[in-house]
Amino acid sequence: MSGPDPRPVGEDDLHALIDERLDPQRRSLVEAWLAERPEQAARVAADRETRLRLRAGLDPIAREPIPARLRIANLQRRRQTSIWRPVAAAAVLCLALGGIGGWVTARGLGPAPVVSTMLSEPATQDAVAAFRTFVVEAAHPVEVRANEMPHLVSWLSQRLGRQLVAPDLRGLGLRLMGGRLLPAGSEQAALLMYDDDRGTRLTLYSRVGTAEGRTVFRFAREGDVAAFSWVDGGMAYVVTARTDEARLLAVAESVDAQVRGLPAPKGTTQERP
């Protein structure tokens, strides 16, 4: 630019000064103007400080790692099942309203994950409470250990009145530790616990549900505990862990496939293209 900007100082200049958008030449002109006007200068100083404090206050959010559910790859994968979204939303609503009647999505297709922040579904509340109670347990995390597997499965199946399956999650780095029986209103619930090499524990909670049919995966989070829940074939299932959504979703998909007698999906969702 040649020569100083001849325009008189305006309010837009003052904002641009506060927002650090003036070129050096204009900036010194505006600063010189302000030096003779203490009242205006004080206003600018106050606005500047407010700006800096707002930035400092909000900046930590922008420095956080991007949550798994906001990763473009994960969103794109979900979009492939997006034709099910309206049905999915209806199913979630139905479940939240008390689970009168199930919504059947197409069998053979996995349910589309629906992200919800509600912890309103009773099975999820109970499952998260059970998770919190038993994962911290060092001496007796489970009643029956996994080395008594046939007994564990037949015992829990008998008490719930349904044939249960203890899903094999070793492909996801999770070993079955064992299980226990829990009260669930007038019924019983089964809690299976898994852990990985780093000691992260995960629970699979299942009980006989009131809703028939099949719902989508619902995500819920309570503090650092995340859960995916769904209903299928008259059973309510909840997987709960302190882990990221992508890993938990992979677990939910694998459990869902195995309880329906389908081959477990290979690998984790993160490893898929």
Binding site: L58, D59, I61, A62, R63, E64, I66, L70, R71, I72
Partner: peptide, 11 residues
Amino acid sequence: LIEPQIPGLRR
């Protein structure tokens, strides 16, 4: 293209 914008969108 999109992911670099996510921190700002969250903020």
